[in-house]
């Protein structure tokens, strides 16, 4: 991993333009050159300094390298597009047309920016604010905005309301924009006239919710935002509120019960490597030491913790259920 990053880092440090012909047509993890000088097109405008790395980053929300390079096989534009448009009656853009079509298709859509000086910043070029620093990062403005919650009324007769908490998915569940909006164009989220991005259930919701029951989303009433106590039926004890989901649930997409290791990863630290339950004042005896944390701490409620009666019956009753392998025992200590 470090080795992979090292090449671009080195290039960035030295500031050497990476010649496009030397661009490695390597594996999919190759990020290509950092900076390119686009200077093969004759015309009245000077060369353009193209921050390739920045665009690689942005391409991740879309189809990746293919967004610009058309196919998985990465080649410099010049390989296919002639610097001078030679034939007038083929449908094959020249290099100048290819650059402008490619660049402006996003720039125009995203920032509604089509002034030549935005890219043609070379001091020797005919136009543009003289010596202006490359400021493509300004493109982050205007920021994409989304409502916290969207409520949909569906045609489902029984349970018509679907509540989608965008904020929960983005902030609580830790999804990245690209997870859902990979197919959207820049301008759909950014820009003054940003339109509501198009997200289809098949592409997005079902990627996680495919095995859920209808009632997970379709309700009679609007659903409140995510609340661990209600939605997971496990009230977070003080101190757990600020944890990310993954801190307990790991990288599971649809979290289930955290493993005891997850608990111990923090709680063990408090007692030097291994968690000694005795440090809490309660000594586990016998087979109890073999249980997982949540076997006893289900529900997250202090009073519910280690309720002996959840396993141990106070008195034997005829026909009383037997739970798993546990022995039917009388209350110890009483």
């Amino acid at each position: 991993m470090i080795a992979l990053l090292a090449v671009p880092m080195l290039l960035l440090a030295t500031g050497l333009p990476f010649p496009p012909t030397a661009g490695p047509a390597g594996g999919p993890t190759d990020l290509g050159p950092d900076v390119l000088m686009l200077d093969q097109v004759p015309g009245c405008y000077g060369a353009v300094r193209f921050d390739h790395r920045l665009h690689v980053g942005m391409s991740k929300i879309g189809d990746g390298c293919k967004v610009c390079h058309h196919t998985e096989a990465i080649q410099p534009c010049r390989t296919c597009h002639e610097p001078v448009t030679s034939s007038v009656t083929t449908d094959w853009p020249g290099l100048r047309g290819a650059y402008h079509q490619q660049c402006l298709s996003c720039h125009r859509e995203w920032a509604h920016e089509n002034a030549c000086g935005f890219c043609h910043t070379d001091p020797s070029s005919v136009i543009g604010p003289q010596g202006r620093a490359h400021s493509a990062f300004k493109l982050q403005e205007p920021r994409a905005t989304a409502q916290n919650t969207y409520v949909y009324r569906t045609a489902h007769p029984g349970m018509p309301i679907v509540t989608f908490h965008h904020a929960d998915h983005a902030e609580v569940f830790g999804l990245s924009c690209a997870d859902c909006h990979g197919g959207n164009s820049c301008g759909q989220c950014h820009g003054p006239a940003a339109q509501r991005p198009v997200v289809t259930r098949q592409d997005t919701c079902y990627r996680c919710h495919s095995s859920d029951r209808c009632i997970t989303c379709h309700r009679l009433t609007q659903r409140p935002r995510f609340n661990h106590a209600e939605c997971a039926n496990w009230r977070l004890r003080p101190g757990h509120d600020d944890l990310a989901c993954a801190d307990c649930h790991g990288a599971q997409r649809m979290p289930g019960r955290p493993s005891s290791e997850a608990c111990r990863s923090c709680h063990a630290a408090q007692s030097g490597g291994t968690f000694d339950h005795a440090s809490t004042g309660v000594v586990l005896f016998g087979d109890h030491a073999l249980f997982g944390c949540l076997d006893c701490h289900a529900g997250g409620d202090d009073r519910e913790i280690a309720r002996c009666t959840s396993c141990h019956e106070t008195r034997p009753v005829a026909g009383q259920r037997e739970v798993g392998h546990r022995a039917l025992i009388t209350t110890p200590g009483d």
Partner: peptide, 22 residues
């Protein structure tokens, strides 16, 4: 001068063919 090559000059027949292909 068109930088995006939105304009294309050619035989009308060819351009019509290109347009329909596109």
């Amino acid at each position: 001068i068109c930088p995006v090559e939105a304009l294309q000059y050619g035989r009308r027949e060819d351009l019509l063919r290109i347009a329909h292909e596109r």
